[in-house]
């Protein structure tokens, strides 16, 4: 565990909490892509199947359980409890275009052709693009609430911090995982445009609005 990984994990946790609290407090999931949240639930489920086979640490187990439970809770709030507020007219990204290529790629490029390993690889590939429906929704409506922007910033920062973690581990532990690194770079790059808008607008107290 190094400082980059810890802050990355905490940033990830913060993102999930921000989203849950926002939906709960406002009793609304307007502006949130249910499809991205479904993809994240799929990501955590397929990645953390090793909970039953491999013990790493209490911290690791605890965080995995939190991520899985929180993602299912979010999906429940969007599709069941606050369904009436869900923006399904704008949430029209075709998720099969993300799920199928991720799955095929995980069959082709993986560390080991074993069920758990392929599902882990699939989750890494899918996570890298899972935010696209959310970014698509923001681009369709042309704006995002500040709290949604904070959520996206925390979520995007997490993989960016993991990039620093991977650089650190490469030098400190001679450890690297090319699949995670390449997918992590892709994931972080997808947020760049958003990061720019976040710094130039949201941090200056303005609403995140895209140019018409």
């Amino acid at each position: 565990m190094n400082i980059f990984r810890l802050t990355g994990d905490l940033s990830h946790l913060l993102a999930i909490i921000i989203l849950l609290v926002k939906i709960w407090k406002t009793r609304s999931c307007a502006g949130i892509s249910g499809k991205s949240q479904l993809l994240f639930a799929l990501v955590y489920t397929t990645r953390y199947l090793d909970l039953v086979s491999t013990y790493i640490s209490a911290y690791n187990t605890f965080m995995k359980l939190i991520f899985i439970c929180a993602s299912y809770a979010t999906v429940y709030l969007i599709y069941m409890k606050f369904k009436a507020t869900y923006d399904h007219n704008h949430d029209t990204f075709r998720v099969e275009f993300l799920i199928l290529p991720s799955f095929v790629l995980s069959l082709l490029i993986n560390h080991d052709f074993a069920v758990l390993e392929i599902l882990w690889t699939f989750s890494i590939y899918l996570e890298s693009v899972a935010i696209l429906p959310q970014l698509f929704l923001v681009s369709k409506t042309g704006e995002a609430e500040s709290i949604t922007s904070h959520y996206l910033f925390a979520l995007g920062s997490y993989r960016g911090l993991y990039l620093l973690n991977w650089i650190y581990r490469y030098y400190a532990e001679s450890h690297y995982d090319l699949i995670a690194i390449v997918a992590g770079v892709v994931q972080t790059v997808l947020y760049c445009d958003f990061f720019y808008l976040y710094v130039t607008k949201v941090l200056k107290g303005k609403k995140l609005q895209l140019p018409a």
């Binding site: 990984r5 994990d9 990830h12 990645r47 090793d50 491999t54 790493i56 690791n60 965080m63 995995k64 991520f67 560390h111 080991d112 882990w120 993991y162 973690n165 001679s174 450890h175 690297y176 995982d177 090319l178 699949i179 995670a180």
Partner: peptide, 10 residues
């Protein structure tokens, strides 16, 4: 490629 036996990251 130097993949670990287990994936210790989240």
């Amino acid at each position: 490629d130097k993949a670990e036996e287990t994936h210790d990251e989240l």
